[in-house]
Design a binder for these strands. Structure first.
Lengths: 108, 108
DNA sequence: CCCTTCGTTCGATGTTCGTGGAACATCGAA
DNA sequence: TTCGATGTTCCACGAACATCGAACGAAGGG
């Protein structure tokens, strides 16, 4: 969990949007995530976040779930997450990232 | 002073080192700065920091001085600078950046 | 005037990054 | 087993980036 990698991970609007989305501490399903990029690109962004140590991924059968590592993050960089979330809300960074209507496990 | 630009500016070790160096609030002369890069590269890094709003540059005759905008930074992103400086110290990010022996105005 | 100093700007180069499409692997369901 | 859904991986492309050396322009000192 290196500083420069974390900063680099947070230097892209879509990734900031994902972090914002996950900032409520709830675990989210991959399929729930909505971003204006191809799924390969979304996979890439999630990998960057995971490699930087910002998120954790759990695999369950054929689908996987993402979770923000708020605790570890706050232990390593006290105040950073709050600062980023605050600024991101003010500028509305990552507003293009959202959730699907269906709350994950729902049939459709 | 946009979030993603600030994060991008802080995603390079040399720039983090410069920020660390300036974090005492003292204004520093360009020539004082020591980094293992060519002067054109150093000029580039200082430009990135300035464009991101992290530093301010004052020109005086033929030489110029750099200063960290700690106040503005802390107003915009409360706690971010402290978090970055703390983590940077722990990991010793930007340790290659230092000061020349001469305290600025000295002849030599 | 020339010459030195200081910092920026200008190509040039190699690398990394964001992006999308296609192929692939995995798993559950029919 | 065959099919469909779900993510990952691979490949390719253009843009952005870090880096350097050289050329440049602005002061200031002989």
């Amino acid at each position: 969990m290196a500083l420069t990698e974390v900063m680099a991970a947070l230097s892209d609007p879509i990734r900031v949007g994902l972090v914002r989305l996950l900032s409520d501490g709830r675990e989210r399903g991959w399929g729930e995530l909505r971003a204006p990029v191809a799924k390969s690109t979304l996979s890439h962004h999630l990998r960057v976040l995971r490699d930087a140590g910002l998120t954790r991924t759990r695999q369950e059968g054929t689908r996987c779930f993402v979770e923000l590592r708020s605790g570890d993050l706050d232990a390593r960089f006290p105040g950073l997450l709050a600062a980023v979330l605050g600024a991101a809300e003010q500028e509305d960074v990552g507003h293009q990232v959202g959730l699907a209507a269906s709350p994950a496990g729902q049939r459709r």
